[in-house]
Design a protein around this nucleic acid. Structure first.
Lengths: 358, 358
DNA sequence: CCCTTGTGCAGGAACGTTCCTTCACGAATA
DNA sequence: TATTCGTGAAGGAACGTTCCTGCACAAGGG
């Protein structure tokens, strides 16, 4: 009943019967294999075309032993899958994963993140890329147990005990270094009261970043000024910024970790009567290219979703093809200093240059 | 070699042998089928768990006759697949398709859009959602020929001759009506020289919209002012806007059809010395929620990618489950009038109200 | 004339499931 | 005692491919 028509699809044997040859001959003729004279080959092809024969993909896969399908799952807010794919970071991850996979002859399946038991195992996959896995992630566990190689974007979680480890790879960022780099830069530019806007999610990124910020503040004896958003959204984010800036002694620098329309943020800050970078230095974590076209251009921190995804797919494909390469790859975030965080004295900034750690 | 380990995976028969029962018993015990006493069932389950047995997904699918996998393909700029998934429209289509599919127990495969011959047929799919198919699209043809139901977002292309038609569905917009609605609104608000920014792509949306604009202008004896972008990108778009506004007799209204950061556009217009809506009325085609938070809020035209995708999936799923419902669904775009296109006299606008045609 | 070598194809075993059919056996009924 | 009946489980045929093996026949060499 699943097939819309009740005509039961023409199979290989049907072609064979119609052409008066065996299954083998048909298969060989259509796949360009075996030793067949051109005449036979063409005859079979003609018959197959006449009958409208199309090979059954599932049967081929069963025979082949692999599916050329890679799974992609985002494990943040598991109960509402793919809601955050609207964010530029996820969107670019999806795009880049797909493009890289296709370049290697693989398709990409967007996976369910919750559901009855281990329902994801019903999908025939050769490998999986898991974004933001949680501690002891059941999905990761299931796939590894099923012998499906997993690459995640958190190296900490790839360190599972025992033999399963051999099948897990990772790509990751030096998150601490990135956050510190931004904070150091702001301090150097004269900032004394740096405020941070983060998200209260299960994503390692936010948790790690917030911790790094607290550590950095503690080392300098500064009081952290932080707003943690329970959920993403334009309204909430702008609200948080407004509140931060309304403090009795307002911050002189703002570092956002949540994704947001940067031109809109700039505009909002202006409407609150503060100028960038005059009154407030600004650095945004974002993948939005619009950031470099604002006035002033905004300093950005990017976690290179495209490169991450590409690397993850390469890792996975290498592993699938038996080329056991590295266990993982560590990236550095891409910090681009622009006018929005230039020193008041004018000693820095104005340009559009990338800074890389150590 | 494809499987990373050379341990050849434990199969159903292996469990059967180890448990001292037959394949049937194992299958029934694990799937909760058949008539088995609890003791046997538990014994088999224990053995299976001990051996680390995981059923082979491909084999199940072959047996089941369906894959619970839906394909998603964007046919715009076929040679560079998924580059435009960064755009909010595509991104939301992908998100909504995936969520709707998962809700019905289907996974989503992001399809290749080019490649050797009909390579997409190697992927085991139950149905396909094709965005922006081109005329006589080979992908659509291939899938229909292979008996895989196709839903596209262009009703014009679903009208293929003959019996194949029964397998194609569509969701679409009344594009002309939407464009005219915006133009009429701008005219009513006092605009006399409406300029349009469109993209030069194969997407029906742009072509149809441009045609509608030309027709509308012709009916009124107005000269069309249009900028067609060869490629999307912040730089190009802002450049086009700058040029349009630099005309000797500049436009008094702007209607953008390409996706763009709306706060950035507003900012750019201001930097060119024009005020919105005072000097220039503004309506943007966008899916970006930031548009309602700018100052002034921007009037937007949305093609509801989320609802489109949901409808497409419903259509597909209905067809797959034998519930032959409609052939398609026609949507109306969502035009929201805000202050950016309010009449100079102040007669209109300021609010945030939706307008629907008809 | 027999043995090799090569060509053209057929048969059938995989791939790993599910599920339909059958069969044995003990208990209940006639 | 001979017939039903229900329970528990085995056997094997699908699902639709691919590909290994092997057979028949013809041509060539000794």
């Amino acid at each position: 009943m699943s097939q819309s028509d009740r005509t039961p699809r023409v199979r290989l044997v049907d072609v064979a019967r119609a052409a008066g040859v065996s299954k083998t001959t048909v298969s060989d003729a259509l796949n360009g294999a075996g030793r067949l004279p051109a005449a036979t080959r063409e005859h079979v092809q003609k018959v197959a075309r006449a009958l409208g024969y199309r090979p059954n993909a599932t049967a081929r896969l069963l025979r082949a032993g692999h599916t050329r399908l890679l799974g992609l799952a985002a494990r943040e807010y598991v109960e509402t899958p793919w809601v955050y794919a609207d964010l530029a970071y996820f969107s670019q991850i999806v795009t880049a994963t797909t493009r890289a996979a296709l370049a290697h002859g693989y398709g990409v399946v967007l996976l369910p993140t919750y559901g009855p038991d281990d329902c994801w195992l019903d999908i025939p996959l050769d490998g999986v890329f898991v974004i933001d896995p949680v501690e002891g992630d059941p999905m990761v566990r299931d796939f590894l147990a099923a012998g499906v190689p997993v690459v995640s974007d958190r190296r900490a979680l790839a360190e599972v005990p025992g033999e399963a480890r051999a099948a897990g790879g990772w790509v990751d960022f030096d998150n601490d270094a990135a956050v510190r780099q931004v904070l150091d830069h702001l301090e150097e530019a004269g900032a004394e009261r740096i405020a941070v806007v983060a998200g209260a999610t299960t994503a390692c990124f936010h948790q790690q970043s917030v911790r790094a910020y607290h550590d950095w503040c503690a080392e300098r004896g500064r009081a952290p000024r932080i707003a943690c958003l329970p959920a993403p959204g334009v309204e909430q984010t702008l609200q948080a910024v407004t509140e931060l800036l309304a403090a009795p002694v307002p911050p002189d620098a703002l570092f956002t970790l949540v994704e947001l329309s940067t031109p809109l943020l700039l505009d909002t800050i202006r409407r609150l009567g503060r100028s960038v970078p005059g009154d407030l230095l600004l650095v945004c974590t974002t993948e939005d290219p619009a950031a470099s076209y604002t006035d002033p251009p905004i300093s950005t921190l990017s976690f290179l979703p495209g490169e991450t995804a590409r690397a993850a797919v390469e890792l996975l494909v290498d592993r699938l093809d038996g080329r056991g390469g590295d266990d993982g790859r560590l990236f550095s975030a891409d910090f681009r200093i622009r006018a929005s965080s230039a020193a008041p004295g004018g000693g820095r900034g104005g340009g559009d240059r990338a800074a890389r750690p150590g």
